[in-house]
Design a protein around this nucleic acid. Structure first.
Lengths: 188, 188
DNA sequence: TTGTTTACTTACTAGTAAGTAAGTAAATTG
DNA sequence: CAATTTACTTACTTACTAGTAAGTAAACAA
């Protein structure tokens, strides 16, 4: 019954399926059976709505980091992969995969948030890989920071490409990706 | 002086910087000092223009495959990487990186072309990695098809992420990526 | 009970989008 | 030379878009 949260939910879905520039307040209003102006009441500009979506994602990331902090690195990674698997089934790409291609067209405050979000994901992934080396649950070539970029990149692209080329692509990519860090893929 | 080609040039630039949904005929008309309707003369609908951009890219891919066919696999890959490096310097992402996130919003004929383009890049990359195993210029874990997905993914994402996080990201990713296929990065 | 805030709606503006129809000057063709 | 095609322009329509201003019914607070 929380209209504000409903709006953010739908905005996230629209951004992750159609992209920031391809959705309008009308899309959301239609589903929620309210008027466009009601959305402007909560989010005066579309930029504000975009920022709210990214802010909520940033909170989720921060929460997960705390919540999973005590788990071994391989289990943390499995949980991340699980999230991407859920997205893939729904045909949703990740926020970074949706917002970074449109980066140059985004309003300034949203650009800043996207930058923060990218860095947050990368930092988390780097920390996770570092921990994996320490607790012995992961092994890979190169530095944790460099490997983190490739892992992030593969996760992002797996959603983009599997939507176009078919879901097998998602499994195939994750299989190869996890082997690169010596993590057994227990889905395939 | 070939207006038609000029229009495709600009459309490609716009798609690769701002995205398909964020550019208009007006953007192109303004630069070329012609009217919107002149663009409709060559490309009746925006879908036609999008298709023309992808078709030209498909031709370039086919041409390169033929032209480089006799080169060792590592040299072929270096040429591909060179292309991405050029894109990165200009802040252009690749067509797949731009069009796959918007996939669900694209007009049907353009969706079909994007699918064909993705598959063409993937096929070429797979063939290239296979050849690398045969001619001994490349070594990697897993199958050529699986590795090709990761290479393609890393190239695509390197452009997306380096625009947001800084150009160092591009170098860092390519370094790690090339090491995974035992190809020395002669740029860093 | 009165005043204020919350959560909207109605009605509107101004701008931009793709796309079309009709006209035209210049080049090309028969 | 006449007819036609090429490469546009002008002028327009239709459909959205984000965003705003003013109003309102219900809930809440003093």
């Amino acid at each position: 019954m929380d209209t504000r949260e409903h709006i953010i939910d739908l905005a996230e879905e629209l951004i992750r399926t159609k992209g920031y520039n391809a959705f309008s307040y009308g899309d959301i209003a239609g589903v929620l059976h309210i008027r466009n102006a009601a959305i402007h009441y909560y989010f005066p500009s579309k930029a504000d709505l975009g920022v709210a979506v990214v802010d909520r994602e940033l909170e989720k990331i921060a929460q997960s980091r705390v919540e999973w902090a005590t788990l071994p690195a391989d289990q943390q990674l499995r949980k991340v992969v699980e999230n991407f698997y859920t997205g893939s089934r729904k045909g949703w790409i990740c926020l970074n995969g949706s917002l970074t291609p449109d980066y140059l067209t985004l309003p300034d405050p949203l650009q800043k948030k996207v930058k923060i979000m990218c860095q947050a994901v990368l930092d988390w992934m780097t920390a996770c890989l570092e921990k994996g080396l320490e607790d012995g649950t992961l092994q890979f070539e190169g530095t944790p920071a460099g490997r983190a970029l490739l892992v992030m990149s593969a996760l992002l692209s797996s959603l983009l490409l599997s939507r176009v080329l078919g879901k097998e692509v998602f499994d195939s990519m994750l299989d190869q990706l996890l082997k690169d860090i010596h993590l057994q893929n227990n889905r395939s």
